[in-house]
Design a protein around this nucleic acid. Structure first.
Lengths: 126, 126
DNA sequence: CCGCATCCACGAAGATACTG
DNA sequence: CAGTATCTTCGTGGATGCGG
């Protein structure tokens, strides 16, 4: 068993399972940031998900890592450096979320989106 | 404004918006039952979503109705009869959820599913 | 039969201080 | 920089009783 969220009998269907894994207030935003900026560091990720607290970001990253969505690489340096990215499963999840995102844009947000175009990798690090 | 969940500035992207509308513990199960049994009555719907309480089912139905996902028809009879079904938007939402359901089945549930047919009968007839 | 109102329990999320 | 620990707050969901 990978985690508490992934165990037999918890879900009745795939949608239920997916929502159980990415549900909550922040996970999809983390996922999106991870997709936009592969190898993003903790502090930068925090800035990319405005409003999230350190504790919540850390715990959600742990959960996503447990669930095989997120890959974590810690470098043994001073100052410490940790990079996060999507696993293959995580990338597939993001792809599976695309139709849902399109639905949300069209039916909830009236076709508007606050981040129409990714700024590009050069905006990731300063 | 349709509801508190649908207002400008609440979401940063379509996925976020969609999860905001269908998030929580029960909404996707309600959605699925509504898809399987169009025109289902309250009591029957309650049986189709095992474990849900009356209060939660009622409030979630109201939210889904506010958000334009669910259509509610009350017949002025004794005893009272109320039927629920998906709106067109709700049906589209269910369709948009299909890839997510497939992802969940394959990556979380190990390909198993507790109910034979995923939402979307016309998905199989293409 | 349908559904709301009230009160209560629990987990998730926020703020802050602290460690390696 | 990258987190952990703790306390508090808040929202969601659960149980029960009442009204149309």
């Amino acid at each position: 068993m990978a985690s508490e969220r992934i165990r037999p009998g918890r879900y009745v269907c795939g949608i239920d399972a997916a929502v159980g894994v990415i549900g909550g207030k922040w996970k999809v935003l983390i996922l999106w940031a991870l997709h936009e900026y592969p190898g993003i560091r903790f502090g930068e990720l925090r800035r990319q998900v405005p409003g999230i607290t350190v504790k919540v970001l850390a715990s959600h990253l742990h959960e996503l890592e447990e669930d095989g969505i997120v890959h974590r690489v810690a470098y043994d340096e001073v100052p410490p450096r940790v990079e996060y990215s999507l696993t293959e499963t995580g990338a597939l999840l993001n792809k599976a979320l695309e139709p849902l995102g399109a639905w949300g844009r069209e039916n909830i947000m009236g076709g508007v989106d606050r981040h129409p175009e990714p700024p590009g990798p050069d905006a990731a690090e300063g």
